[in-house]
Design a protein around this nucleic acid. Structure first.
Lengths: 347, 347
DNA sequence: TTGTAGGCGTTATCAA
DNA sequence: TTGATAACGCCTACAA
């Protein structure tokens, strides 16, 4: 009666379902939550009434008392298509569950935008998945307020949130090993200016592998900021220096493509004059004019694993998990030596 | 008293603020909503109490009776960096308001994922901004349920939602005019297989401009699917046909870069043998090895305008608005004829 | 201009 | 196993 009243079509509530199924609202709520203590017959009665009436739970009302079945996914920016893979992976993990991921964009990387975090917590999201943040103290504070999993943050010593990461150390080793096997020895790493742990890890892998292969004297890390201007200026400096390298391992594909651009403008042939390796294996690597060798970090796997861990955490797990995904090298033309090696510049 | 009770730190509510400020809860609520009928002195008292206590409104509770100040932004996919500009624009429009945009990814383009829409409406979002959907009937149904603005959908005859669009007709005209001015006449358009209105608009602009310039006999639209395999197969077919064109206007930069790749593999020089123009002016156009002329549609402007319109609609506007953003051509090396024109293939 | 008293739809506690 | 009912925090008549 009550809900068939006024002008606009009233929302179908748990009460309508209860009336239709001839059970109590408490019973319907239990069925809804898959809570303990409902008989199969009751469950099926309720389910068919819900279907018949087209009942949809009111998330705001649920948020008043219990879960919203909403996860907040915080991403640093959108321009690297790699992040789309993370999203795909987390969606895959959520398919078939009641959970829904909603995405917010963090415009203050590497710190997390407090306003965004607050707004997600205010909206009673059940947990947060934060990508690319690196302020450990801040993350610990956030983890005190809500279940938290991070991607792209190697602070695995913490006890309050889970981490999922590409094995960045191994990623750099893969690149170095491949280049050395292809005959390059004077290999520079073009990295970013940042105190991010993923950068530290990858730089460590590069250094260690160079040392391990007896090429420590060639090891050189150059750090640039993200801006195209700075990347290109830095690339030009590297490529025109007297002790210029035979190969450059770049932080991302986007940076690698800029290096190819600068090298091309300088009249250098790739890979004969200079070999280039990127990171992320984005779709732009595959063009004939780029054909960029790159390290593939499975964003899909990272997202999938992270979302699964987050749900476990929401369901009560307290012990932290720290998961590493193995990278994979995809070789293309930019790093295959076609002509005999000339002597290394500084040998 | 009540909220200083038990074990875990209780949430600070409107009631605590009211007590601290020595006013009623209704007064605090009014201040919160910037509603009519609050004295300046009361407002400032309440504001300082909120700040002092660190009060944060409980969005779920607000959603039970009023607004959630949350907008749903539905995007088709992430891989085109152009969408990041839309997000930036909508964030710019929302900065300084109480509104927060939360993003959902639609995996069923060109139809909108009903599950995603429902989940956003269930979460009491105040309005939806849908990008890249084209099922007009479905959009009208959605608009009946919630305030709606679309981007990338030229169904401007509807009376229930607002549309914001790139002027796709003009975008194609810009490309054609530029190519003709650079000496190309046999210009093919490489478009997509789809009944999207943006595609129809752009194809119309292409055809009309070719006709207007007396080049109707050269007008040819080839449609491919989005997959790299199909794009590359189609590009190869176009580039090796006996009546092959002098220039190709491509649906997106990504497609254009693939065409450049195929042309390069075929030993064609760009732009001497074949000129290429893309669309979206993404950051990948700028590399020396690509240097792709492209039409810039201001995603930032599209997002900004759309979010503004959505807020207007939420605040009560009923009359539809349909807004067109002017595109802009950015010329690079891929379309500047360097050598004298040879006779058009089929003249 | 301010205050009081339901009520929004759901969950969870407790009794039956 | 089921049901009655008091919260949850905010909004909005209505009253003062």
């Amino acid at each position: 009666m009550k809900s068939s009243g006024g002008g606009k079509p009233n929302r179908i509530t748990i009460r309508d379902v209860a009336a239709d199924a001839n059970v109590s609202v408490a019973a319907v709520s239990k069925v809804l939550r898959e809570a303990y203590g409902v008989s199969p017959s009751m469950r099926s009665k309720v389910h068919s009434s819900m279907a018949k009436l087209g009942y949809r739970p009111h998330t705001a009302a649920r948020g008043m008392r219990g879960q919203t079945f909403t996860l907040g996914l915080i991403l640093p920016d959108f321009r690297n298509p790699f992040f789309a893979d993370i999203i795909d992976g987390s969606h895959d993990a959520l398919a078939g569950t009641q959970y829904q991921a909603l995405i917010g964009i963090n415009r203050t990387t590497p710190t997390v935008d407090e306003g965004l975090v607050n707004s997600m917590i205010d909206r009673q999201m059940d947990g947060l998945l934060i990508v690319g943040a690196n302020d450990q103290a801040q993350l610990i504070e956030i983890a005190k307020r809500t279940p938290l999993v991070t991607i792209g943050n190697h602070h695995s010593s913490n006890q309050v949130y889970d981490t999922v990461n590409n094995d960045d150390d191994e990623a750099a080793r893969l690149a170095v090993r491949h280049l050395v096997e292809s005959g390059y020895r004077n290999i520079t790493m073009l990295s970013l200016i940042s105190d991010s742990t993923i950068i530290k890890e990858r730089e460590r892998g590069y250094r260690d592998e160079m040392n391990r292969l007896g090429l420590g004297r060639f090891a050189r890390i150059v750090n640039a900021s993200q801006t195209p201007q700075d990347v290109q200026k830095t690339a030009r400096a590297i490529l025109t220096a007297p002790d210029r390298p035979e190969a450059i391992f770049c932080w991302t594909d986007f940076i690698a493509l800029q290096v190819i651009g600068v090298a091309t403008e300088l009249g250098r042939r790739i890979p004969d004059d200079i070999a280039i390796v990127g990171h992320d294996n984005t779709m732009y690597c595959d063009f004939a004019q780029n054909s960029l060798t790159s390290v593939d970090q499975s964003g899909q796997m990272l997202g999938l694993k992270a979302a699964s861990l987050l749900i476990e955490r929401i369901k009560g797990r307290e012990t932290p998990e720290h998961y590493l995904v193995a990278p994979r090298l995809v070789v293309r033309n930019s790093s295959i030596r076609r002509t005999p090696a000339r002597p290394a510049a500084a040998s």
